[in-house]
């Protein structure tokens, strides 16, 4: 187990390095630079001074080496668009916000989705199944910004129950989480439904029935446990997405999250932030994948014991 984890961590670092390198060169290939993005009318001299201060006048290769060296020292750079703010601080301040919304919506969406999926599968082709599948399709196809805009108008203007925008209190969390968990509910409901339908047709369910096991126990111990395994893979990649947040939700509800920050940084050509956040997100993603592998190994005995016979 330990060797397995260590090997995976090793691969992780290699992948991280490659991703960071590619991003570096990609970001610098976009026309425009941070100062022009912000201040239209800049005298050439100031521009030169500005670029020199941040080292952008150096050839790309030199910049790259300096960047890698800085990363290894843990210095992910400083924002260009917001002088004085370090990327690490930006992550520390904004990530929890995205984390709360992303985490909550994932948790709620996942739970409701899984339950709906089981319900749908066990009542196949009857009205609960049909209703849940319609909701799931709507959830997957209706774009987030439509749901968010509609809900925002309905629940803050037509019936002013919630605040339109803002952050800081519990009431600010409700609408964003509501909008964001539509996707996971739909996805996990469909996924779980097909997984359960698969499982239900397995022979070992018949064996369990032949043993006289109660329907309840068949659902909980045999069907649920075995259908749930494939969903673990999915939730791990969703976990990776929690912190990158949803740009759309954060923009519409004016939430100071990392997703919005990342996209704005790209528009502003804020190289350091883009690169720094990219490293963080890639790292989180890879960690989530590793977590997933470990979880799968722990929960599915076929994987865990495949090496010893």
């Amino acid at each position: 187990m330990l060797k397995f984890t260590l090997k995976r961590l090793g691969y992780m670092l290699v992948v991280l390095f490659i991703v960071v390198t590619i991003t570096f060169f990609l970001v610098h290939s976009i026309p425009g630079d941070p100062i022009t993005a912000m201040v239209q009318d800049l005298p050439e001299e100031t521009r030169t001074v500005y670029l020199a201060r941040y080292g952008f006048d150096q050839p790309l290769g030199v910049q790259y080496v300096r960047f890698i060296k800085a990363c290894l020292c843990g210095n992910l750079g400083e924002s260009l668009r917001y002088p004085g703010r370090k990327v690490i601080d930006i992550v520390r301040n904004y990530a929890p916000v995205s984390g709360v919304i992303g985490g909550l919506s994932l948790a709620i969406g996942f739970t409701i989705g899984i339950l709906c999926g089981i319900l749908a599968a066990l009542n196949r082709n009857k009205w609960p199944d049909k209703l849940i599948m319609v909701i799931a399709i709507l959830g997957t196809t209706i774009p987030t910004f439509v749901t968010a805009a509609v809900l925002q108008y309905l629940l803050t203007v037509t019936w002013p129950i919630f605040p339109t925008t803002g952050w800081g209190q519990a009431k600010h969390i409700v609408l964003p989480v509501l909008c964001m968990c539509v996707g996971p509910v739909a996805t996990y409901a469909r996924y779980m439904r097909s997984s359960v339908l698969d499982t239900v047709n397995q022979d070992y369910i018949l064996t369990a029935e032949a043993k006289g096991v109660s329907q309840f126990r068949i659902v909980t111990r045999h069907i649920f446990r075995n259908s749930f395994l494939p969903c673990i893979t999915m939730i791990c990649s969703s976990i990776a997405g929690i912190f990158s947040g949803s740009f759309i939700i954060e923009s519409i509800f004016a939430i100071p999250g990392l997703g919005k920050y990342f996209i704005s940084a790209i528009n502003d050509r804020d190289y350091s932030v883009v690169l720094g956040l990219n490293i963080i997100f890639t790292g989180i993603y890879i960690l989530a994948m590793l977590l997933c592998d470990i979880l799968m190994a722990l929960t599915d005995p076929r994987i865990r014991y495949s090496n010893d016979r």
Partner: peptide, 9 residues
């Protein structure tokens, strides 16, 4: 508030 619909609302 960056989103114009949110501003109007």
């Amino acid at each position: 508030i960056p989103d114009s619909n949110a501003q109007l609302a």
